[in-house]
Write a protein that binds this DNA or RNA. Structure first.
Length: 257
RNA sequence: UUCGUCUAGCUUA
């Protein structure tokens, strides 16, 4: 049973829903973990019909089952679906509330997100990061900053959330500043931080600044390796700016066409 | 590590 569940969940994570199904049906005995793992497999791969069938057939519903539904509808930007599941479930915990919070955030419902956030009694780091993301995605940098500063702790995810929002809703200089503060506070910028920043520069129209930054990345952060995705971003930015020659050079440096 | 929740861009367009 234990090992069967382990196999189902690993298939679920890799997106092999069919395999998860066959393991499930071949098991002599299943429990609620098996059912939830199977439900999670469908939810993750967006098989909404199947997920609903499984949900209906499950012998019992746990917090995990409901949270899977909320999360699935969140991924599909189906706010009503998330809310239906959330309000139908008998009790809430921090994880299910966080999932609902994410759905509000993704669908731009910052007020409802805030109400729910305030109502969560045991807020964890994810609750804070999710409400932060709600404001960040809506471009409300003022509220985002106050959440960011008010949170009990700031992880790399919090920093990246702020950085991404600043990159798209404020100016490149501010994004750059955050980027440096992040490092000073002991959170190494990662691939996400870089692409936000590159994007900020290219949207600011300062292609030359992007190029400088790009080369600085290669120099100062070799431990991150310049990933081809960044090269792609740069090439695209150059292309959009009509700098086809520079784009070509960059692409060739990277060994592509 | 037997099940559920948080961040960007690019691509698919």
């Amino acid at each position: 049973l234990f090992s069967g569940n382990l196999v189902i969940s690993s298939y679920a994570r890799s997106g092999f829903v069919d395999n998860a199904f066959s393991v499930f049906s071949s098991m002599l005995e299943v429990d609620s973990v098996s059912w939830n793992a199977l439900l999670g497999a469908c939810a993750r791969s967006g098989q909404i019909e199947n997920a609903q069938l499984i949900f209906a057939r499950m012998p019992e519903w746990s917090l995990s089952s409901w949270t899977n539904l909320i999360w699935m509808h969140c991924q599909g930007s189906n706010l009503e679906g998330s809310k239906r599941a959330f309000y139908e479930m008998p009790e809430w915990d921090t994880v299910s509330s966080n999932a609902m919070l994410a759905s509000f955030a993704r669908n731009g419902q910052t007020h409802e997100a805030r109400e729910l956030f305030d109502a969560i009694s045991d807020k964890d780091e994810i609750s804070w990061n999710t409400i932060l993301a709600a404001y960040a995605q809506a471009g409300d940098l003022t509220s985002a900053s106050s959440i960011f500063l008010g949170a009990p702790e700031r992880s790399s995810i919090s920093w990246n959330t702020m950085l991404a929002s600043t990159s798209s809703f404020a100016c490149a200089a501010q994004a750059m500043e955050l980027f440096h503060e992040m490092a000073i506070e002991g959170h190494s910028p990662d691939q996400l931080s870089f692409s936000s920043l590159l994007n900020a520069c290219s949207h600011a129209g300062s292609i030359d600044q992007s190029l400088l930054l790009f080369h600085a990345m290669a120099r100062d952060h070799q431990e991150l390796l310049i990933q081809s995705q960044h090269v792609t971003t740069m090439v695209d930015a150059l292309g959009r700016a009509g700098r086809t020659l520079a784009a070509q050079e960059l692409a060739e440096d990277d060994g592509r066409d």
